[in-house]
Design a protein around this nucleic acid. Structure first.
Lengths: 253, 253
DNA sequence: TCAAAAGTGTTTTGGTTACACCCATGC
DNA sequence: GCATGGGTGTAACCAAAACACTTTTGA
């Protein structure tokens, strides 16, 4: 539990260094053991979980702020990170919560102000990230997409909007470089796509399509040790991958 | 030209009713005589043009704010209006401009603060809109996409981002209901698409595809008066149109 | 040796592209 | 009547979907 003193101190500091009324929330996706994961934080003062978030420093570009917030929660930097929506309902603040509203006078309590939040979503390598709680949270950890805890505020809306966006992106952008390890097999990559889309894909058509994009390098090695036939390993061709990110994978009209 | 007194008055009022650090800019597209148009404002104090914009009231949802701003500039309400990007560079403010920076002390001058701007784009019927300047502008008018004046601030970036978004949307969403008059011919609708995309489309394939979407009603009348064969008139099937907006026009994967 | 996973191919199909022909109207 | 724009149909093409066969490996 945060004390009144701690909250006052955090608030006074925040007012000094951050822009008022603007926050950033990140939906951080990871992939592990065939399951899609989201990074979440268990609040100290409130009974629920939330997405990693933060504020924008007074002279900081918003993309830099999002990167900083993500780096603080995971230790990783320079990953796929993209704004996807702004959440600006007037009641998306913490005034309803006694802890935030009553402990410190509302005007003086930065965190009880109204915040318009810019939603970012990130794709990161599960093993690269070291989940790290912030001052307001007791736990920071990966949660399975199929087993999500109750959300605080409008964070469920932010999460579902991010997932919808990710699914859309999948149709016209390559995705995977930031979610997969350096080397991976085609079935592993397929599993990622199936997990994001929530449905099965044809093994052979998937492979042909993926290879058709020209963003994969087939490595001479195979992944041994598993039962059954050993699958080939692949890595992303970063140059072509970046190009595909810009160009898109297919054109309409 | 605005006087110092006017600016002070506007600023004091703005501080009272608006959220600090958050602005909204609208890219309003219209279509007239086969040309794509954007609504723009000629600044009183600065030598350049800008997009219609404004701020968010302290307890107002951002979508409502965008609608209000659009309605104030055009007199129309309830049109297609969608946020598409947030512009958050730290130097996107008016501190460089003597008028805004020197005339009134920076802290007291709301308009010289740093603003993070939420970009919205709108599609409106050219004839429904009555362009109306705001306090800071001497002119509010439609400008042709092929003949754009110099932009202030980062409004050129906002505009081009909006146009890119519109072109993308075209691939998987129906567009036209808000840009065309109630009744229109197929060649007229095609002209809209060609103008947005900046390229010619095949007459027959366009017609087939459009009809295939099932969002058009073919009316018994034809448009007489023009030279050559009289084309049929169409209207949008609003119900199917709305459904298509939600579902999208084509699916990937 | 057999089940299960992986590699590689072919057929089918549906949508898009390209193109041809006919009709109406004003000059 | 003829140039121009508009309505309608069809062949060609291509990419995605559906499907079959072979290979490898551990149990």
């Amino acid at each position: 539990m945060l004390t009144k003193e701690e909250l006052e101190e955090y608030s006074a500091e925040a007012i000094e260094i951050y822009l008022d009324h603007i926050s950033i929330d990140c939906v951080v996706f990871g992939f592990h053991e065939g399951q899609m994961k989201v990074l979440m934080l268990k609040s100290k003062n409130e009974d629920g979980w939330q997405l990693p978030g933060g504020f924008v420093q007074k002279r900081e570009p918003i993309d830099v702020a999002a990167n900083r917030i993500l780096a603080t929660r995971t230790g990783i930097d320079e990953v796929f990170l993209q704004q996807f929506h702004v959440f600006g309902a007037p009641d998306r603040n913490r005034q309803h919560n006694e802890m935030y509203a009553d402990m410190v006078a509302k005007e003086k309590n930065f965190f009880a102000h109204r915040f318009i939040s810019i939603g970012y979503y990130a794709l990161v390598d599960f093993f690269d990230a070291i989940p790290t709680p912030d001052e307001f949270s007791e736990i920071c950890t990966w949660r399975d997409l199929n087993d999500l805890p109750p959300f605080l505020l409008d964070h469920e809306l932010i999460f579902t909007t991010a997932l919808d966006t990710l699914r859309l992106q999948l149709s016209y952008q390559p995705i995977g470089y930031n979610l997969m390890p350096k080397e991976f097999t085609m079935p592993e990559l397929q599993k990622l796509y199936e997990t994001i889309l929530g449905k099965k894909l044809d093994r052979r058509n998937f492979q042909r399509r993926m290879l058709g994009f020209g963003i994969l390098n087939k490595l001479p090695q195979t992944r041994k040790g598993g039962a059954h036939k050993a699958p080939y390993l692949y890595s992303f061709d970063l140059e072509n991958y970046q190009a595909a990110l810009k160009e898109g994978l297919k054109s309409g009209w």
